[in-house]
Design a protein around this nucleic acid. Sequence first.
DNA 1: TGAGTTTGCTACGTTTTCCGTAGCATGGAG
DNA 2: CTCCATGCTACGGAAAACGTAGCAAACTCA
Lengths: 107, 107
Amino acid sequence: MAKKPGQSVRGSTTGRPIMVLLDALGRRWALRVLWELSSGPSSFRDLQARCGDVSPTSLNARLKDLRDLQLVALTEEGYALTRHGRDLAARLGPLNAWANTWAKALG
Amino acid sequence: MAKKPGQSVRGSTTGRPIMVLLDALGRRWALRVLWELSSGPSSFRDLQARCGDVSPTSLNARLKDLRDLQLVALTEEGYALTRHGRDLAARLGPLNAWANTWAKALG
DNA sequence: TGAGTTTGCTACGTTTTCCGTAGCATGGAG
DNA sequence: CTCCATGCTACGGAAAACGTAGCAAACTCA
């Protein structure tokens, strides 16, 4: 069961939403799943393939978390971002451009 | 040694910068460290305290990664964000406001 | 109806990561 | 020399993530 805002997480007992969020996004595959789903719904197995054949165990654990946090939901079209999830993913989108310039500077 | 752009990471063999970034940020304490350092440089032990007394082992591992990726550097004032690091952290800043409305909606 | 396919997902045993505690080495201050 | 703060490592145990195999339910098509 994923920790929700208001609950104590690793490194913060205050339950501040940003701390809960940073903790949740810091788990393996969390960011990647949001990223992949931002381009549309996906079945479990499709999502698994998009994530480089991540094991179903790991994928399912992260999906459980993200569903608890109401960022992802299982719909008739497969796994999809919720309204909150889309909102969050929209803020992560620009990271792609940033990452490219960062990579170029790293040479 | 942290994986750099161009190198294969978990779930992606292409080395695309965004994939490398998502993988790096998906490690424990990575996001939190960037977050804490965005409000100014910090000594190792201070940073440790800010992160809820994270173990030095974990903190140091993550700092090594972030230094490899040139997001963090050890300066005369302590650990600090590099130019790239500040740039990235600036894009994470707005997540705080988002997290608050998200938490309120989850309430 | 019944064989084949695709779905989401779990069981299980192994590997990797993370963690807490203790403490070392260096350097500055008194 | 003593005291204290610094960055950091060693070590053993706990938790998280992993790969492989495969189940049960729903669909497809004969």
